[in-house]
């Protein structure tokens, strides 16, 4: 059974920030993480951000801005996101179940800061900045710095996540998103990989972005892999070496653990598959 001490549902952002300034409130949006968590915690004061109009998706020159309270379903089906941030649309379409996607929000997915948050690798590919509001004003933090460690962000009790500003993806990029779970749906990701590649007519890779979830303590872009690929001609050997390097980096970061005999070959296999998928080439030359 859950219980609350007080429940506020403000109509304006100003009102919400004033309440947050007291430091007493926990924020609730879709509730798909907060409500199950409340079963194990003492009564809390909740601030519901459902009436603040934070479920927008809007296009600027080089960016798409997504309100923190946009649901996974909304993001999955939004034409702007499908066009400019296709990996994010795919990632959000794989979250939980249809019921969860209809309620769970992107803000909640990121604020919860789980190592396996499905939307995070996709947002990292698009160099996302998190826009925060507080009674002190507005600030913007790179997503890569926003999540500090598992389940911990730079957010204070006085902050409200307003939106995510994502750089539009390259139109000519090939993209691949792989989510590994124990079943096809309603699973917690065991591993997620997002890859975006651009190659020229000679099959030389001119742009490479790679981000992973559940490989390192937090969702992470892997610049070592990106640098290895850029300027190289697509080949089986290149992708094999890149996938091996990913596994080496994982073990370097976390040490050999009980799960390593499983995770190492799986990461290598999935990374290869993601690279091949994003390259758009069916028969990769040896």
């Amino acid at each position: 059974m859950i219980s609350v001490e007080s429940y506020k549902r403000p109509e304006t952002i100003a009102e919400a920030l004033k309440l947050l300034k007291t430091g007493k409130f926990g924020i609730i949006a879709g509730g798909t993480d907060v409500i199950p968590q409340m079963r194990h915690t003492p009564a809390r004061s909740l601030l519901d951000i459902g009436k603040l109009g934070l479920d927008f998706v809007r296009e600027n020159d080089n960016t798409v801005e997504i309100g923190a309270a946009a649901t996974h379903s909304q993001i999955q089906n939004n034409p702007l996101i499908q066009r400019f941030l296709p990996l994010l649309s795919t990632a959000c379409g794989l979250v939980g179940s249809w019921q969860i996607r209809n309620r769970g929000t992107i803000g909640g997915n990121i604020v919860n800061a789980s190592p396996c948050a499905d939307s995070a690798p996709a947002l990292l590919i698009y160099d996302t900045k998190v826009v925060l509001l507080s009674s002190q004003g507005r600030r913007s933090v790179n997503l890569s710095e926003f999540i500090k460690k598992p389940y911990l962000t730079v957010l204070t009790a006085k902050d409200l996540v307003h939106s995510f500003v994502c750089q539009k993806g390259d139109d000519s990029a090939g993209n691949s998103f792989i989510k590994l779970g124990r079943r096809q749906a309603v699973n917690i990701s065991r591993m997620t990989i997002a890859v975006s590649l651009v190659r020229d007519d000679s099959n030389k890779i001119t742009m490479a972005k790679i981000a992973v979830g559940s490989v390192f303590p937090t969702p992470t872009r892997i610049s070592e892999l990106e640098n290895k690929l850029i300027g190289q001609i697509v080949s089986k050997e290149l992708f094999d070496e890149t996938a091996d390097l990913a596994a080496d980096l994982m073990i370097k970061a976390s040490g050999v653990r009980w799960s390593t005999p499983y995770k190492k070959p799986v990461l290598i296999g999935l990374m290869r598959r993601a690279l091949v998928g994003a390259s758009g080439i069916k028969e990769i030359p040896a």
């Binding site: 429940y7 798909t32 969860i100 309620r103």
Partner: peptide, 23 residues
Amino acid sequence: EIGECGACTVLMNGKPVNSCLVM
């Protein structure tokens, strides 16, 4: 009561949601 089983599904504005995860 944690949004895994779907037994509590209702429609909210035409969309299925877990009523155990709506305040």
